[in-house]
Design a protein around this nucleic acid. Structure first.
Lengths: 226, 226
DNA sequence: AAGAGTATCGTACGATGTACTGAACCGCTA
DNA sequence: TAGCGGTTCAGTACATCGTACGATACTCTT
Protein backbone atom coordinates (compact mmCIF):
# COMPACT_ATOMS: atom_id res chain seq x y z
CA UNK A 1 0.00 0.00 0.00
CA UNK A 2 3.02 2.18 -0.01
CA UNK A 3 3.56 3.50 -3.50
CA UNK A 4 1.04 3.15 -6.29
CA UNK A 5 -1.65 0.61 -6.46
CA UNK A 6 -0.99 -1.82 -9.29
CA UNK A 7 -2.34 0.06 -12.31
CA UNK A 8 -5.14 -2.42 -12.78
CA UNK A 9 -6.05 -5.60 -11.04
CA UNK A 10 -4.73 -7.43 -14.04
CA UNK A 11 -6.15 -10.85 -14.04
CA UNK A 12 -3.54 -13.17 -15.22
CA UNK A 13 -4.46 -16.34 -17.00
CA UNK A 14 -7.56 -14.67 -18.27
CA UNK A 15 -6.84 -16.25 -21.62
CA UNK A 16 -6.80 -19.83 -22.67
CA UNK A 17 -7.03 -21.77 -25.85
CA UNK A 18 -10.63 -22.72 -25.05
CA UNK A 19 -11.63 -19.14 -24.37
CA UNK A 20 -9.99 -17.97 -27.57
CA UNK A 21 -11.90 -20.52 -29.61
CA UNK A 22 -15.19 -19.84 -27.84
CA UNK A 23 -14.87 -16.11 -28.38
CA UNK A 24 -13.92 -16.71 -32.00
CA UNK A 25 -17.05 -18.79 -32.46
CA UNK A 26 -19.22 -16.14 -30.84
CA UNK A 27 -17.67 -13.42 -32.94
CA UNK A 28 -18.19 -15.41 -36.14
CA UNK A 29 -21.82 -15.98 -35.19
CA UNK A 30 -22.45 -12.33 -34.46
CA UNK A 31 -20.52 -10.62 -37.19
CA UNK A 32 -19.83 -13.22 -39.83
CA UNK A 33 -16.73 -15.18 -40.59
CA UNK A 34 -15.22 -12.33 -42.58
CA UNK A 35 -15.29 -10.09 -39.51
CA UNK A 36 -13.39 -12.68 -37.53
CA UNK A 37 -9.91 -11.22 -37.71
CA UNK A 38 -7.11 -11.60 -35.25
CA UNK A 39 -7.44 -7.96 -34.35
CA UNK A 40 -11.19 -7.98 -33.86
CA UNK A 41 -10.98 -11.17 -31.86
CA UNK A 42 -8.31 -9.72 -29.61
CA UNK A 43 -10.35 -6.59 -29.08
CA UNK A 44 -13.46 -8.58 -28.21
CA UNK A 45 -11.42 -10.38 -25.59
CA UNK A 46 -9.94 -7.21 -24.20
CA UNK A 47 -6.41 -8.05 -25.23
CA UNK A 48 -3.99 -7.39 -28.06
CA UNK A 49 -3.60 -9.30 -31.31
CA UNK A 50 -0.28 -10.92 -30.67
CA UNK A 51 -1.34 -12.25 -27.29
CA UNK A 52 -3.54 -14.79 -29.00
CA UNK A 53 -0.59 -16.40 -30.68
CA UNK A 54 0.51 -17.82 -27.39
CA UNK A 55 -2.48 -20.17 -27.50
CA UNK A 56 -2.89 -20.82 -31.21
CA UNK A 57 -0.25 -21.22 -33.87
CA UNK A 58 -2.09 -19.24 -36.52
CA UNK A 59 -5.51 -18.28 -37.76
CA UNK A 60 -6.05 -21.56 -39.57
CA UNK A 61 -5.84 -23.31 -36.23
CA UNK A 62 -8.59 -21.04 -34.95
CA UNK A 63 -10.77 -21.92 -37.92
CA UNK A 64 -10.13 -25.63 -37.46
CA UNK A 65 -10.90 -25.19 -33.80
CA UNK A 66 -14.27 -23.51 -34.17
CA UNK A 67 -15.40 -26.03 -36.78
CA UNK A 68 -14.64 -28.73 -34.25
CA UNK A 69 -16.54 -26.75 -31.62
CA UNK A 70 -19.59 -26.85 -33.86
CA UNK A 71 -19.35 -30.62 -34.08
CA UNK A 72 -18.89 -30.91 -30.34
CA UNK A 73 -22.33 -29.32 -29.97
CA UNK A 74 -24.02 -32.17 -31.80
CA UNK A 75 -25.22 -35.06 -29.70
CA UNK A 76 -23.69 -38.33 -30.83
CA UNK A 77 -25.96 -40.97 -32.30
CA UNK A 78 -26.08 -44.20 -30.37
CA UNK A 79 -25.59 -47.65 -31.91
CA UNK A 80 -27.98 -48.93 -29.25
CA UNK A 81 -30.99 -46.98 -30.49
CA UNK A 82 -33.14 -47.52 -33.54
CA UNK A 83 -30.93 -46.54 -36.43
CA UNK A 84 -33.60 -44.60 -38.24
CA UNK A 85 -34.51 -42.54 -35.21
CA UNK A 86 -30.85 -41.93 -34.52
CA UNK A 87 -30.11 -40.82 -38.06
CA UNK A 88 -33.17 -38.63 -38.09
CA UNK A 89 -32.16 -36.95 -34.87
CA UNK A 90 -28.58 -36.58 -35.99
CA UNK A 91 -29.60 -35.01 -39.28
CA UNK A 92 -31.76 -32.45 -37.55
CA UNK A 93 -29.11 -31.73 -34.96
CA UNK A 94 -26.54 -31.13 -37.68
CA UNK A 95 -28.85 -28.92 -39.66
CA UNK A 96 -29.66 -26.91 -36.56
CA UNK A 97 -25.99 -26.54 -35.73
CA UNK A 98 -25.11 -25.45 -39.25
CA UNK A 99 -27.97 -23.00 -39.19
CA UNK A 100 -26.76 -21.55 -35.91
CA UNK A 101 -23.28 -21.24 -37.40
CA UNK A 102 -23.77 -20.65 -41.13
CA UNK A 103 -20.11 -19.86 -41.72
CA UNK A 104 -19.24 -23.43 -40.76
CA UNK A 105 -20.61 -24.75 -44.03
CA UNK A 106 -18.27 -22.66 -46.08
CA UNK A 107 -15.38 -23.60 -43.84
CA UNK A 108 -15.88 -27.32 -44.33
CA UNK A 109 -14.63 -27.07 -47.86
CA UNK A 110 -11.25 -25.68 -46.91
CA UNK A 111 -10.60 -27.44 -43.60
CA UNK A 112 -9.05 -30.84 -44.15
CA UNK A 113 -7.73 -31.60 -40.69
CA UNK A 114 -10.69 -32.68 -38.58
CA UNK A 115 -10.61 -32.27 -34.82
CA UNK A 116 -11.37 -34.78 -32.11
CA UNK A 117 -15.07 -33.94 -31.81
CA UNK A 118 -15.46 -34.25 -35.55
CA UNK A 119 -13.81 -37.66 -35.60
CA UNK A 120 -15.89 -38.86 -32.66
CA UNK A 121 -19.01 -37.73 -34.46
CA UNK A 122 -18.10 -39.55 -37.65
CA UNK A 123 -17.20 -42.68 -35.78
CA UNK A 124 -20.42 -42.76 -33.77
CA UNK A 125 -22.47 -42.29 -36.93
CA UNK A 126 -20.66 -45.05 -38.76
CA UNK A 127 -21.07 -47.29 -35.74
CA UNK A 128 -24.80 -46.71 -35.63
CA UNK A 129 -25.15 -47.64 -39.27
CA UNK A 130 -23.04 -50.75 -38.88
CA UNK A 131 -25.03 -51.80 -35.83
CA UNK A 132 -28.21 -51.42 -37.86
CA UNK A 133 -27.00 -54.14 -40.16
CA UNK A 134 -25.62 -52.16 -43.06
CA UNK A 135 -22.67 -53.80 -44.76
CA UNK A 136 -19.39 -51.94 -44.85
CA UNK A 137 -19.79 -50.70 -48.43
CA UNK A 138 -23.44 -49.85 -47.82
CA UNK A 139 -22.48 -47.90 -44.71
CA UNK A 140 -20.10 -45.86 -46.80
CA UNK A 141 -22.82 -45.23 -49.37
CA UNK A 142 -25.35 -44.29 -46.71
CA UNK A 143 -22.98 -41.98 -44.93
CA UNK A 144 -21.93 -40.19 -48.10
CA UNK A 145 -25.57 -39.81 -49.06
CA UNK A 146 -26.79 -38.55 -45.70
CA UNK A 147 -23.96 -36.10 -45.17
CA UNK A 148 -24.15 -34.82 -48.70
CA UNK A 149 -27.80 -34.07 -48.20
CA UNK A 150 -27.33 -32.44 -44.83
CA UNK A 151 -24.37 -30.33 -45.90
CA UNK A 152 -25.98 -29.38 -49.17
CA UNK A 153 -29.20 -28.38 -47.51
CA UNK A 154 -27.31 -26.27 -45.01
CA UNK A 155 -25.33 -24.74 -47.84
CA UNK A 156 -28.50 -23.71 -49.62
CA UNK A 157 -30.01 -22.40 -46.42
CA UNK A 158 -26.93 -20.33 -45.78
CA UNK A 159 -27.09 -18.91 -49.28
CA UNK A 160 -30.69 -17.82 -48.98
CA UNK A 161 -31.09 -14.06 -48.73
CA UNK A 162 -33.99 -14.50 -46.34
CA UNK A 163 -34.43 -16.48 -43.20
CA UNK A 164 -37.28 -18.26 -41.55
CA UNK A 165 -40.98 -18.38 -41.99
CA UNK A 166 -42.78 -15.74 -44.03
CA UNK A 167 -39.68 -13.68 -44.58
CA UNK A 168 -39.19 -14.95 -48.11
CA UNK A 169 -42.16 -13.00 -49.39
CA UNK A 170 -40.91 -9.60 -48.32
CA UNK A 171 -37.60 -10.03 -50.04
CA UNK A 172 -38.36 -12.03 -53.14
CA UNK A 173 -41.67 -10.49 -54.12
CA UNK A 174 -40.13 -7.36 -55.67
CA UNK A 175 -37.54 -9.49 -57.42
CA UNK A 176 -40.18 -11.79 -58.84
CA UNK A 177 -42.04 -8.89 -60.33
CA UNK A 178 -39.08 -8.12 -62.50
CA UNK A 179 -39.24 -11.65 -63.83
CA UNK A 180 -42.93 -11.59 -64.54
CA UNK A 181 -42.08 -10.67 -68.11
CA UNK A 182 -41.72 -14.38 -68.74
CA UNK A 183 -38.04 -15.10 -68.99
CA UNK A 184 -38.11 -17.49 -66.05
CA UNK A 185 -41.69 -18.76 -65.97
CA UNK A 186 -41.12 -21.79 -63.80
CA UNK A 187 -39.23 -19.89 -61.16
CA UNK A 188 -42.06 -17.42 -61.03
CA UNK A 189 -44.57 -20.22 -60.76
CA UNK A 190 -42.75 -21.86 -57.88
CA UNK A 191 -42.32 -18.54 -56.18
CA UNK A 192 -45.87 -17.35 -56.53
CA UNK A 193 -47.60 -20.63 -55.85
CA UNK A 194 -45.30 -22.01 -53.20
CA UNK A 195 -42.51 -19.91 -51.76
CA UNK A 196 -44.48 -16.72 -51.41
CA UNK A 197 -47.44 -18.43 -49.79
CA UNK A 198 -47.91 -17.46 -46.16
CA UNK A 199 -46.25 -19.77 -43.71
CA UNK A 200 -43.56 -20.96 -46.12
CA UNK A 201 -40.22 -21.82 -44.63
CA UNK A 202 -37.48 -23.38 -46.70
CA UNK A 203 -36.41 -25.32 -43.65
CA UNK A 204 -39.63 -27.33 -43.86
CA UNK A 205 -38.33 -28.92 -47.06
CA UNK A 206 -35.68 -30.71 -45.05
CA UNK A 207 -37.84 -33.49 -43.71
CA UNK A 208 -39.20 -34.50 -47.09
CA UNK A 209 -35.78 -35.31 -48.47
CA UNK A 210 -34.54 -36.79 -45.24
CA UNK A 211 -37.45 -39.22 -45.00
CA UNK A 212 -37.13 -40.13 -48.66
CA UNK A 213 -33.48 -40.96 -48.11
CA UNK A 214 -34.09 -42.92 -44.93
CA UNK A 215 -36.87 -44.85 -46.66
CA UNK A 216 -34.53 -45.73 -49.45
CA UNK A 217 -31.77 -46.74 -47.11
CA UNK A 218 -34.02 -48.99 -45.06
CA UNK A 219 -34.48 -51.08 -48.17
CA UNK A 220 -30.74 -51.68 -48.29
CA UNK A 221 -30.42 -53.55 -45.02
CA UNK A 222 -29.89 -57.20 -45.82
CA UNK A 223 -31.04 -58.80 -42.60
CA UNK A 224 -34.35 -58.65 -40.72
CA UNK A 225 -36.55 -55.63 -41.38
CA UNK A 226 -36.66 -54.55 -44.97
CA UNK B 1 9.26 9.78 -86.26
CA UNK B 2 10.59 12.92 -84.90
CA UNK B 3 10.96 12.46 -81.19
CA UNK B 4 10.54 9.08 -79.52
CA UNK B 5 8.85 6.06 -80.98
CA UNK B 6 5.71 5.14 -79.10
CA UNK B 7 7.05 3.06 -76.24
CA UNK B 8 5.19 -0.07 -77.34
CA UNK B 9 2.68 -0.98 -80.02
CA UNK B 10 -0.03 -0.90 -77.42
CA UNK B 11 -2.99 -2.91 -78.45
CA UNK B 12 -6.08 -1.19 -77.29
CA UNK B 13 -9.23 -2.99 -76.37
CA UNK B 14 -7.27 -6.01 -75.30
CA UNK B 15 -9.45 -6.20 -72.22
CA UNK B 16 -13.13 -6.82 -71.82
CA UNK B 17 -15.45 -7.89 -69.07
CA UNK B 18 -15.69 -11.37 -70.58
CA UNK B 19 -11.93 -11.75 -70.79
CA UNK B 20 -11.50 -10.59 -67.23
CA UNK B 21 -13.99 -13.16 -65.98
CA UNK B 22 -12.56 -15.94 -68.11
CA UNK B 23 -9.05 -15.24 -66.90
CA UNK B 24 -10.30 -15.05 -63.33
CA UNK B 25 -11.90 -18.47 -63.72
CA UNK B 26 -8.73 -19.94 -65.19
CA UNK B 27 -6.63 -18.46 -62.46
CA UNK B 28 -8.95 -19.80 -59.76
CA UNK B 29 -8.80 -23.24 -61.34
CA UNK B 30 -5.04 -23.24 -61.54
CA UNK B 31 -4.06 -21.63 -58.27
CA UNK B 32 -7.11 -21.77 -56.07
CA UNK B 33 -9.62 -19.13 -55.14
CA UNK B 34 -7.36 -17.66 -52.49
CA UNK B 35 -4.72 -16.90 -55.11
CA UNK B 36 -7.26 -15.01 -57.18
CA UNK B 37 -6.39 -11.47 -56.23
CA UNK B 38 -6.81 -8.34 -58.24
CA UNK B 39 -3.08 -8.05 -58.55
CA UNK B 40 -2.45 -11.62 -59.61
CA UNK B 41 -5.33 -11.44 -62.06
CA UNK B 42 -4.00 -8.25 -63.58
CA UNK B 43 -0.54 -9.73 -63.88
CA UNK B 44 -1.87 -12.87 -65.56
CA UNK B 45 -3.60 -10.65 -68.10
CA UNK B 46 -0.54 -8.53 -68.69
CA UNK B 47 -2.06 -5.41 -67.27
CA UNK B 48 -2.19 -3.45 -64.04
CA UNK B 49 -4.57 -3.91 -61.13
CA UNK B 50 -6.60 -0.76 -61.53
CA UNK B 51 -7.26 -1.36 -65.18
CA UNK B 52 -9.63 -4.16 -64.29
CA UNK B 53 -11.89 -1.82 -62.43
CA UNK B 54 -13.05 -0.31 -65.65
CA UNK B 55 -14.85 -3.56 -66.45
CA UNK B 56 -15.96 -4.73 -63.02
CA UNK B 57 -17.15 -2.70 -60.08
CA UNK B 58 -15.28 -4.70 -57.49
CA UNK B 59 -13.97 -8.13 -56.65
CA UNK B 60 -17.36 -9.40 -55.55
CA UNK B 61 -18.63 -8.81 -59.06
CA UNK B 62 -15.79 -10.98 -60.35
CA UNK B 63 -16.74 -13.75 -57.95
CA UNK B 64 -20.40 -13.53 -58.94
CA UNK B 65 -19.32 -13.58 -62.55
CA UNK B 66 -17.18 -16.70 -62.42
CA UNK B 67 -19.86 -18.58 -60.49
CA UNK B 68 -22.26 -17.77 -63.29
CA UNK B 69 -19.63 -18.90 -65.80
CA UNK B 70 -19.56 -22.27 -64.10
CA UNK B 71 -23.32 -22.59 -64.49
CA UNK B 72 -23.14 -21.55 -68.10
CA UNK B 73 -20.98 -24.61 -68.71
CA UNK B 74 -23.74 -26.98 -67.66
CA UNK B 75 -26.06 -28.18 -70.37
CA UNK B 76 -29.67 -27.33 -69.59
CA UNK B 77 -32.10 -30.15 -68.94
CA UNK B 78 -34.97 -30.36 -71.41
CA UNK B 79 -38.62 -30.62 -70.43
CA UNK B 80 -39.12 -32.68 -73.58
CA UNK B 81 -36.91 -35.56 -72.49
CA UNK B 82 -37.53 -38.25 -69.91
CA UNK B 83 -37.35 -36.45 -66.60
CA UNK B 84 -35.31 -39.11 -64.91
CA UNK B 85 -32.70 -39.20 -67.64
CA UNK B 86 -32.58 -35.44 -67.68
CA UNK B 87 -32.14 -35.15 -63.94
CA UNK B 88 -29.52 -37.87 -63.99
CA UNK B 89 -27.58 -36.10 -66.68
CA UNK B 90 -27.93 -32.74 -65.02
CA UNK B 91 -26.73 -34.09 -61.68
CA UNK B 92 -23.63 -35.57 -63.27
CA UNK B 93 -22.98 -32.44 -65.26
CA UNK B 94 -23.19 -30.32 -62.15
CA UNK B 95 -20.96 -32.61 -60.19
CA UNK B 96 -18.42 -32.60 -62.98
CA UNK B 97 -18.52 -28.82 -63.19
CA UNK B 98 -18.12 -28.43 -59.44
CA UNK B 99 -15.26 -30.87 -59.51
CA UNK B 100 -13.56 -28.95 -62.30
CA UNK B 101 -14.02 -25.77 -60.28
CA UNK B 102 -13.91 -26.83 -56.63
CA UNK B 103 -13.79 -23.26 -55.35
CA UNK B 104 -17.29 -22.71 -56.76
CA UNK B 105 -18.86 -24.80 -54.01
CA UNK B 106 -17.50 -22.59 -51.30
CA UNK B 107 -18.53 -19.51 -53.19
CA UNK B 108 -22.14 -20.58 -53.43
CA UNK B 109 -22.63 -19.93 -49.76
CA UNK B 110 -21.66 -16.31 -49.95
CA UNK B 111 -23.00 -15.32 -53.37
CA UNK B 112 -26.64 -14.34 -53.18
CA UNK B 113 -27.09 -12.55 -56.49
CA UNK B 114 -27.37 -15.22 -59.18
CA UNK B 115 -26.43 -14.43 -62.76
CA UNK B 116 -28.37 -15.04 -65.94
CA UNK B 117 -26.90 -18.48 -66.63
CA UNK B 118 -27.70 -19.55 -63.10
CA UNK B 119 -31.29 -18.41 -63.38
CA UNK B 120 -31.70 -20.11 -66.76
CA UNK B 121 -30.37 -23.30 -65.29
CA UNK B 122 -32.76 -23.21 -62.35
CA UNK B 123 -35.69 -22.42 -64.57
CA UNK B 124 -34.95 -25.23 -67.00
CA UNK B 125 -34.62 -27.71 -64.17
CA UNK B 126 -37.87 -26.63 -62.57
CA UNK B 127 -39.57 -26.79 -65.96
CA UNK B 128 -38.38 -30.34 -66.53
CA UNK B 129 -39.77 -31.45 -63.18
CA UNK B 130 -43.11 -29.74 -63.78
CA UNK B 131 -43.36 -31.31 -67.24
CA UNK B 132 -42.77 -34.69 -65.65
CA UNK B 133 -45.97 -34.29 -63.69
CA UNK B 134 -44.67 -33.15 -60.32
CA UNK B 135 -46.98 -30.79 -58.52
CA UNK B 136 -45.70 -27.36 -57.63
CA UNK B 137 -44.93 -28.20 -53.99
CA UNK B 138 -43.45 -31.53 -54.98
CA UNK B 139 -41.25 -29.80 -57.55
CA UNK B 140 -39.93 -27.56 -54.80
CA UNK B 141 -39.27 -30.57 -52.60
CA UNK B 142 -37.56 -32.46 -55.39
CA UNK B 143 -35.42 -29.53 -56.37
CA UNK B 144 -34.31 -28.83 -52.84
CA UNK B 145 -33.48 -32.48 -52.38
CA UNK B 146 -31.58 -32.91 -55.62
CA UNK B 147 -29.56 -29.74 -55.30
CA UNK B 148 -28.81 -30.36 -51.66
CA UNK B 149 -27.41 -33.74 -52.56
CA UNK B 150 -25.41 -32.48 -55.51
CA UNK B 151 -23.96 -29.49 -53.68
CA UNK B 152 -23.28 -31.49 -50.56
CA UNK B 153 -21.53 -34.22 -52.48
CA UNK B 154 -19.41 -31.68 -54.29
CA UNK B 155 -18.63 -30.01 -50.98
CA UNK B 156 -17.40 -33.27 -49.53
CA UNK B 157 -15.41 -34.03 -52.65
CA UNK B 158 -13.77 -30.63 -52.46
CA UNK B 159 -12.88 -31.19 -48.82
CA UNK B 160 -11.18 -34.51 -49.46
CA UNK B 161 -7.43 -34.33 -49.12
CA UNK B 162 -7.03 -36.84 -51.93
CA UNK B 163 -8.44 -36.99 -55.39
CA UNK B 164 -9.49 -39.75 -57.70
CA UNK B 165 -9.07 -43.44 -57.85
CA UNK B 166 -6.51 -45.19 -55.68
CA UNK B 167 -5.06 -41.98 -54.33
CA UNK B 168 -6.90 -42.28 -51.03
CA UNK B 169 -4.72 -45.12 -49.89
CA UNK B 170 -1.44 -43.27 -50.17
CA UNK B 171 -2.65 -40.39 -48.09
CA UNK B 172 -4.93 -41.94 -45.53
CA UNK B 173 -3.04 -45.13 -44.79
CA UNK B 174 -0.47 -43.48 -42.53
CA UNK B 175 -3.24 -41.54 -40.81
CA UNK B 176 -5.24 -44.67 -40.21
CA UNK B 177 -2.33 -46.34 -38.53
CA UNK B 178 -2.39 -43.71 -35.83
CA UNK B 179 -6.01 -44.59 -35.17
CA UNK B 180 -5.44 -48.30 -35.00
CA UNK B 181 -5.22 -47.97 -31.23
CA UNK B 182 -8.97 -48.23 -31.20
CA UNK B 183 -10.34 -44.76 -30.56
CA UNK B 184 -12.21 -44.64 -33.82
CA UNK B 185 -12.86 -48.29 -34.65
CA UNK B 186 -15.61 -47.78 -37.21
CA UNK B 187 -13.66 -45.21 -39.18
CA UNK B 188 -10.76 -47.62 -39.30
CA UNK B 189 -13.07 -50.41 -40.42
CA UNK B 190 -14.53 -48.35 -43.24
CA UNK B 191 -11.11 -47.19 -44.25
CA UNK B 192 -9.42 -50.56 -44.24
CA UNK B 193 -12.24 -52.57 -45.73
CA UNK B 194 -13.57 -50.07 -48.21
CA UNK B 195 -11.78 -46.80 -48.84
CA UNK B 196 -8.28 -48.24 -48.92
CA UNK B 197 -9.26 -51.09 -51.22
CA UNK B 198 -7.67 -50.80 -54.65
CA UNK B 199 -9.85 -49.08 -57.18
CA UNK B 200 -11.78 -47.05 -54.67
CA UNK B 201 -12.96 -43.61 -55.78
CA UNK B 202 -15.22 -41.51 -53.62
CA UNK B 203 -16.84 -40.19 -56.78
CA UNK B 204 -18.31 -43.64 -57.37
CA UNK B 205 -20.54 -43.14 -54.35
CA UNK B 206 -22.41 -40.45 -56.21
CA UNK B 207 -24.58 -42.70 -58.32
CA UNK B 208 -25.85 -44.74 -55.39
CA UNK B 209 -27.39 -41.74 -53.68
CA UNK B 210 -28.56 -40.19 -56.90
CA UNK B 211 -30.43 -43.32 -57.97
CA UNK B 212 -31.91 -43.74 -54.51
CA UNK B 213 -33.22 -40.19 -54.67
CA UNK B 214 -34.58 -40.52 -58.19
CA UNK B 215 -36.28 -43.79 -57.24
CA UNK B 216 -37.91 -42.11 -54.31
CA UNK B 217 -39.00 -39.13 -56.37
CA UNK B 218 -40.53 -41.29 -59.08
CA UNK B 219 -42.97 -42.54 -56.46
CA UNK B 220 -44.15 -38.99 -55.91
CA UNK B 221 -45.56 -38.36 -59.34
CA UNK B 222 -49.32 -38.44 -59.09
CA UNK B 223 -50.23 -39.25 -62.66
CA UNK B 224 -49.30 -42.15 -64.91
CA UNK B 225 -46.09 -43.98 -64.11
CA UNK B 226 -45.49 -44.56 -60.43
C1' DA C 1 16.81 -10.90 -3.74
C1' DA C 2 17.59 -13.13 -7.88
C1' DG C 3 16.65 -15.85 -11.54
C1' DA C 4 13.66 -18.85 -14.54
C1' DG C 5 9.80 -19.60 -16.86
C1' DT C 6 5.23 -18.11 -18.40
C1' DA C 7 2.29 -14.89 -20.45
C1' DT C 8 1.51 -10.51 -22.90
C1' DC C 9 2.44 -6.90 -25.90
C1' DG C 10 4.72 -3.06 -29.46
C1' DT C 11 6.49 -2.55 -33.66
C1' DA C 12 6.92 -3.56 -38.23
C1' DC C 13 6.61 -5.97 -42.88
C1' DG C 14 4.47 -7.64 -46.85
C1' DA C 15 0.06 -8.57 -49.12
C1' DT C 16 -4.63 -7.26 -50.18
C1' DG C 17 -8.79 -4.40 -52.05
C1' DT C 18 -9.55 -0.18 -53.97
C1' DA C 19 -10.21 5.29 -53.98
C1' DC C 20 -8.32 9.10 -56.33
C1' DT C 21 -5.99 11.27 -60.05
C1' DG C 22 -3.82 11.87 -64.20
C1' DA C 23 -2.09 10.17 -68.60
C1' DA C 24 -2.59 7.93 -72.99
C1' DC C 25 -5.31 6.66 -76.77
C1' DC C 26 -9.29 6.54 -80.00
C1' DG C 27 -12.73 8.20 -83.24
C1' DC C 28 -14.73 12.02 -84.38
C1' DT C 29 -16.16 16.84 -86.09
C1' DA C 30 -14.76 21.39 -87.89
C1' DT D 1 -5.27 18.78 -90.27
C1' DA D 2 -6.20 20.30 -85.62
C1' DG D 3 -8.32 19.63 -81.70
C1' DC D 4 -11.71 17.66 -78.52
C1' DG D 5 -14.36 14.52 -75.60
C1' DG D 6 -15.14 10.03 -74.26
C1' DT D 7 -12.73 5.61 -73.30
C1' DT D 8 -9.19 2.96 -71.45
C1' DC D 9 -5.24 2.32 -68.64
C1' DA D 10 -1.86 3.12 -64.89
C1' DG D 11 0.71 5.38 -60.52
C1' DT D 12 0.34 6.42 -56.05
C1' DA D 13 -1.52 5.93 -51.63
C1' DC D 14 -4.24 4.19 -47.72
C1' DA D 15 -6.61 1.15 -44.56
C1' DT D 16 -6.72 -3.56 -43.11
C1' DC D 17 -5.09 -8.16 -42.85
C1' DG D 18 -1.92 -12.13 -40.81
C1' DT D 19 2.04 -12.60 -38.26
C1' DA D 20 7.51 -12.57 -37.44
C1' DC D 21 10.52 -10.77 -34.06
C1' DG D 22 11.96 -9.24 -29.88
C1' DA D 23 11.03 -6.79 -25.64
C1' DT D 24 8.41 -6.55 -21.46
C1' DA D 25 5.80 -7.79 -17.39
C1' DC D 26 4.17 -10.94 -14.16
C1' DT D 27 4.54 -15.22 -11.02
C1' DC D 28 6.86 -18.64 -8.70
C1' DT D 29 10.89 -20.98 -6.94
C1' DT D 30 15.04 -20.88 -4.56
Amino acid sequence: MSSTTPPAPRKRLSLSREKVLECALDLADESGIAALTIRSLAQSMGTKPMSLYYYVANKDEILDGIVDLVFSDIELPSPAGDWRDEMHRRAHAMRAALKRHPWAVGLLESRTSPGAATLRHHDATLGTLRAAGFSVPMTAHAYALLDSYIYGFALQEAALPFEGRDTAAEITAPIMERFSGGEYPYMVEIAVEHVLKPGYDFGDEFDFGLNLILDGLSRSIPRSNA
